[in-house]
């Protein structure tokens, strides 16, 4: 339970930086807040804001959905904890994120799995969106968010979120190769394309049953 509180606080902080960075990149406040409510997936939201601001909405949708495709296998893994009634499935699916899955999988029996899923999901949804609104207000109040270094906060936050999965060697190889390709091609290609080219890092994938990040 205490862990859920800690992760809620962390997600609140990320949500806030998303809100502030969203308005700093030129998106209207309603768009930033709506996105947090209806998409509710941090990585994809940051990606979308960055690529929309860069003028490539197609890449924003494509990269965001590619990023969120991982929710399908996550859903397969925690479906029993979500519940069997349609009401539970329809509502519960929306609060399925990386952290909900991680906390649910850590529980030993069906009853505590279900409790963990709904408690974590609801906590994160609330803290993510309250954080987002406060971030939007902060971003609008400050105006020049670069003076506060918020442009550095976003990549640093992404790296912090990514680090645990980089302990797996194959994931690390693929991710670093992808990042290198994207950075090197950024001066040469239209916005959005370099990030998608990072998928070429998958060529390093070996045919062994590596440990899964989920």
């Amino acid at each position: 339970m205490r862990d859920v509180g800690a992760i809620g606080l962390a997600v609140f902080a990320v949500g806030m930086s998303f809100g502030a960075i969203g308005v700093a990149s030129g998106l209207p406040a309603w768009a930033v807040i709506t996105m947090s409510l209806v998409v509710f997936a941090g990585g994809a939201q940051f990606m979308a804001v960055g690529l929309v601001a860069a003028g490539n909405p197609f890449a924003a949708v494509f990269a965001g959905l590619l990023l969120n495709a991982r929710h399908l296998p996550f859903g397969l893994a925690v479906a029993d904890a979500v519940g069997t009634s349609w009401r539970r499935r329809l509502v519960g699916s929306h609060i399925l994120v990386d952290e909900t899955v991680a906390f649910t999988m850590a529980q030993p029996d069906p009853a505590s799995r279900r409790r963990a899923y709904w408690l974590t999901g609801a906590t994160l949804f609330v803290s993510w969106n309250i954080g987002g609104v406060l971030g939007v207000l902060l971003g609008e109040a400050v105006g020049d968010t670069d003076a506060l270094g918020l442009d550095a906060a976003f990549p640093a936050g992404l790296i912090a979120l990514l680090l645990p999965s980089l302990r797996d060697r194959q994931t690390r190889d693929v991710a670093l190769a992808g990042a290198l390709v994207a950075v090197v091609t950024t001066p040469l290609l239209p916005a959005g394309l370099p990030v998608l080219l990072a998928l070429s890092g998958l060529l390093l994938m070996r045919r062994r049953p590596g440990r899964l990040a989920c």
């Binding site: 940051f46 990514l162 693929v174 991710a175 994207a182 990030v195 890092g201």
Partner: peptide, 12 residues
Amino acid sequence: PLAAAALLAALA
């Protein structure tokens, strides 16, 4: 999961 890691690392 690998594709997600590659995209996020590239974005970062």
